[in-house]
Every structure is written in C-alpha cells, then in structure tokens.
Amino acid sequence: MNIHAPDPQILPKTNIPPVYGPIRTKIQMTTNNSNNTFNRKLLPFVIAFFIITGGFIFFEYQTKTSKLQNRAKLTTESERPIPKQEITPIPLATESAFINFEQTVDRMKEIIQNSNLIDPSVSPPIFELSLGFSK
C-alpha cells in the first residue's frame, strides 16, 4: 500500500447528496414602473379590434374572390351574342342644371304674365285749367 498515494475523494457520509431535479426559481420582473402591468379592462377592446380587423380582412378576401368569379363569368358570357342596348346616361350634373333651368323658366313665365307694366300710382291729376269766370 502506497502511503504517498492521494486519498480517494470520497464524500463524507454526513453530506447530503445533491438533488438534480428541476430548479424552480421565481424570476421577479424588475422594472422601474410598477403600473406597467396589463390592464384587464382593455381586454374587450383588444378582442373587438382583432374581430373587426379579421372581419375586414375576410370581407376584402371575399370581395376579391367574387370579383374574380364574376370576371370569369363575364368572359364566358360575352362569347354568347347579346342584343345591343343603347342607354343614354344623364349625369347628375345635367339633372341639377336642368332643375335650375326649369325653375328659371317657371319663374320668368310667372313674372312676365303677372307684372304690371303701367304703374297706377303715376296717373296724372285731374285739374281745372280754366278759371271759369264769365268775364
């Protein structure tokens, strides 16, 4: 037995063996502002935002899809002969201008028919020229 040989590194029996399980440590958020926590009152609004946005995206998608379908339909239908129909479009500006014209004509007709050309207030006075003395 070699006396100079190093002692085997045997842990003393009193030592508690290490436990190699999951180590749970509570991590604390260290922020300067303690009020920055998520406000639960905002939750309905956030949900509503997501629903609206989602709905909008869905609607856009649907519209585009239906447009594409319609275009596809039109291209197939246009191959068939359709009787040509000519419709004269009357734009909105024409309609409002016509209403103005109509009102102008009606007003003018009324004025021309109903106004007095001869002012009765300028009827001349009736006066006697001769003094009527017999001599």
């Binding site: 004025i111 021309i112 106004s115 007095n116 050309l117 001869i118 002012d119 300028v122």
Partner: peptide, 10 residues
C-alpha cells in the same frame, strides 16, 4: 317711358 322701362325689365 316708365312702362317701356318695366317692359325692358321683363
């Protein structure tokens, strides 16, 4: 003249 003026307005 006044009557003609009124006619002119019309």
């Amino acid at each position: 003249g006044l009557a003609l003026g009124n006619l002119s307005v019309l």
